[in-house]
């Protein structure tokens, strides 16, 4: 409920109502205090919103501020509701819809990356193929025996998905993913 987060004033700002479901990436700056994540998650579950991905970590230690990145889906009306509902939470300093920001700047999407650790086990040709593909995807081997590799791969969600799909027939054992971290392109911050 912060003044700076209210939409720029324009009479009749809602020209048309779309019911198409869209995916948006929201960035929240919050006080890093006990319960803040529970407030955010509780809001999503309580009001029936979707969370596709959520990441959180303290980003400004001296101010005790954390940044939460949420990827969510909904109609434009729902996305607007999510933004305003999040903004209503007392420890939330700022909510930014990075997807909207990117669209306003004529960009396709905000910068989004996630990291995955992918464990693949196998021997012989499959093992070599996994290594070759890991190379092609610029994945790094961070652990290995003669029977397995653990790849560290960074990229957009689609790239990670693709890599995991390819590794499946080559002996995929398990995957751990961080979820999406995102910033706006260009020199400005939030």
């Amino acid at each position: 409920m912060n003044a700076q987060n209210v939409d720029a004033p324009s009479a009749y700002f809602l020209a048309e109502v779309s019911n198409e479901v869209e995916t948006h990436t929201l960035s929240l700056l919050v006080d890093n205090e006990p319960g803040v994540l529970a407030r955010v998650i509780g809001l999503f579950s309580g009001r029936g919103y979707n969370i596709d991905s959520l990441t959180v970590s303290e980003t400004e230690h001296e101010k005790h501020l954390s940044r939460i990145t949420i990827v969510t889906t909904g109609t434009p009306m729902i996305i607007q509701q999510i933004r305003h509902q999040l903004d209503r939470l007392v420890p939330v300093h700022r909510v930014t819809d990075l997807t909207v920001r990117a669209l306003r700047a004529n960009q396709d999407k905000p910068l989004e990356r996630e990291l995955a650790l992918v464990k693949v086990a196998g021997t012989g040709e499959k093992r070599l193929e996994a290594l070759r593909l890991g190379d092609a995807f610029r994945a790094t081997v961070i652990d290995a025996t003669t029977e397995h590799f653990v790849f560290e791969i960074t990229g957009r969600t689609s790239k990670i998905e693709q890599f995991i799909a390819i590794m499946k027939p080559l002996g995929l054992v398990e995957v751990s993913r961080t979820g999406v971290a995102a910033v706006q392109r260009g020199p400005e911050g939030l």
């Binding site: 209210v6 939409d7 809602l14 109502v17 009306m77 509701q81 305003h84 509902q85 903004d87 209503r88």
Partner: peptide, 10 residues
């Protein structure tokens, strides 16, 4: 409350 805007009626 901005969240009251467009919640049920545009």
């Amino acid at each position: 409350d901005p969240s009251s805007i467009n919640k049920t009626v545009n």
